[in-house]
Design a protein around this nucleic acid. Sequence first.
DNA 1: TCTGGGGTCCTAGGACCC
DNA 2: TCTGGGGTCCTAGGACCC
Length: 416
Amino acid sequence: MTEFPKTVFHVDMDAFFVSVEELFDPALKGKPVVVGGQRQERGVVSAASYEARKFGVHSAMPLRTAARLCPEATFVDGHPDRYREYSEKVYRVLESFSPQVEMVSIDEAYVDMTGTARLHGPPMLAAHKLHASMKAQTQLNCSIGIGASRLIAKVCSGKAKPHGVFYAIPGGEAKLLAPLDVRDIPGVGKVTEQKLRGLGIHTVGDMATIEDRLLERHLGKWGLALAGKARGEDAGAWFAGTIGQAEPAKSISHEHTFNEDTANVEQIEATLMRLSEMVGRRLREHGFQARTVQLKLRYKDFTTITRARTLEMPTQLDNEIFREIDHLFHANWRKGAEIRLLGVQASSFAAPSAQGDFLNDGDRGRWQQALSAVDRVRDRFGESSITLATGMKGGFRERTHENPVGLPGKDKPVPD
DNA sequence: TCTGGGGTCCTAGGACCC
DNA sequence: TCTGGGGTCCTAGGACCC
């Protein structure tokens, strides 16, 4: 048996959000486009077209900054549903090239192409076939990096942008990495970069000359991992590991930044209720029961706290989540202080409990049934068709928008 | 020009148990 | 009796990614 050389593709969609928006509005093509919100809004750029990038606009930049740098840009709200839909199309294309596909984000994936030469030809040929197939089936462009490990492939896809292929021939990894800025290594952010600069380390090559223990002392576990490998030894194994199915989620969260800071308790509680509903809904969708519930609170001055509580009984119910969150809020809010952001997170998922016990559990059972009914209404009429009231004592109080739907109190029948 | 939203992983300290 | 140490759970904060 011949050992096939490990061949990993890192496939990165080009300006993904912008490209998807262009499919829905072809007039955007060739123009500077900023996705993420309107020009005067509080928020940041999710994605910028290559035309907008020429003006210095890039993702994570405040929208208002982008508007100043590029006044002629068209600002577009993001459409997560569209991106998810296209992400699935991308996945299906990749899956037709190899069974080992791992989406690492909505617009990026690792594909293990080891041993596929008979089917798809050598790596460069396979990559060009993938380009063509991607374009034909999704109308989108991607960039492809090829290497003997995830890290090498990832670095290569960066070099391939836009709409190119970059192949690191096995054996040349250390040479490829040496001139790179430390910041190009995934996992090295602003803070780590500054620490490294303080040690006189600017490139991956510099890193190779530093003693392991020094890196470990300054960067901990991660530093140690970087150290040996920067020398090129075992470079092929950086982040090597099985490429396969995504792991199940470990947490589910929603957060909201107010357009204007607020200390209005009703507005705050309404927001916490809405966030709790969104989290509960997704827990039920996934069949998860969460043991830990966490509140996130960011004040006007950007100081941020999180406060968590682990429950005796895991839950997936909006009202139980909200009860904990509301309690955490009142126990920790500096009363009267203006709030910029609120967040609700659920984590520590328990194995799905015995359904029977749960459903027969009196009050909780009724809530479970009522919320399932709410989920069905939302499936049919949209998210905004129905919402629970805040300050819920006892059963539901109805509060509806355009599409009024009555919710049951706990003694009333559940509608279908 | 103030700084989104949804995630993962790591560190560190305290409680608690053996 | 004057004080060990390992393991696990929980909480809070922070770095980082797209």
